[in-house]
Nucleic acid binder design. Sequence first.
DNA 1: GTAGGTGCAAAGAGTTTGCATACGC
DNA 2: GCGTATGCAAACTCTTTGCACCTAC
Lengths: 140, 140
Amino acid sequence: MQTYFQNLLKEHDLKVTKNRLMMLEALQEDDTFLSAEALHKKLLKHNKTLSLSTVYRAMEALVEVGIISPVNIETSKETLYELSHDEHAHHLICLKCHKIIHFHHCPVQGYGQTIEKQYGFKVKEHKLELYGYCDKCQNA
Amino acid sequence: MQTYFQNLLKEHDLKVTKNRLMMLEALQEDDTFLSAEALHKKLLKHNKTLSLSTVYRAMEALVEVGIISPVNIETSKETLYELSHDEHAHHLICLKCHKIIHFHHCPVQGYGQTIEKQYGFKVKEHKLELYGYCDKCQNA
DNA sequence: GTAGGTGCAAAGAGTTTGCATACGC
DNA sequence: GCGTATGCAAACTCTTTGCACCTAC
């Protein structure tokens, strides 16, 4: 599995460093969004001198080549990061526990054409977030 | 028109002050989103000693009672504010000139039920933003 | 008169940058 | 060895807070 990330970095002309591999593994392990600070805190166990700015710089580089994706959600001021998925996805965000759930069906698909006709606006991408309460938090 | 805002403030048990009226008028005049700083800069003409923290505190109070709405969009780090509209709306955001256009038809309406069935997630609100290029910027 | 609003300065959170050193290739 | 990555400290941006004073009601 390490080999996979090593190749991924090489493919994008990024140097393979221990720090970057750790970050990618941590993101994979959690399979959810992590803030730069959360990632930093988590990885200090493995590299006591890891700097927060290194995390930010790595996130920047990885976002640029598309290996990871940043998201800014309403329930947090921090930018969160996750491994990019092939599939187009949106998010369910629990207002109580802040858990983030991906869902892959996109109710907005094809809607860009309607908008283009109506507003002369060329839609390139979109962001849909549903806020509410998850299974657990509803029953608590 | 001033009277309208005065009443609006009173209705929500907020004191009617010159600063707050100015802010609401400025937001109305622009009919678009303004950041706290943009609002502050704009109003310094009318009140030379207006403090940025006063703007932030006013925004907080006005958001709390629903007179204005905050939005965090991907093209700006700052929180932007606008007068609340009765109608449910989403946004088209130009990636070049950063203009924001409201649109009122909601393609996600009723979609919450599908999500609730599928994920046991109770949807309370949602946010849809379409990013792309406006009329003008497409032809430039 | 009293509670809430305001200005100013300082603090705080999140993020970015400059620079010297270390490391991948 | 060259160029990128890293650690550290400092700077920067946006926002919040403490406190004394002021103003709406």
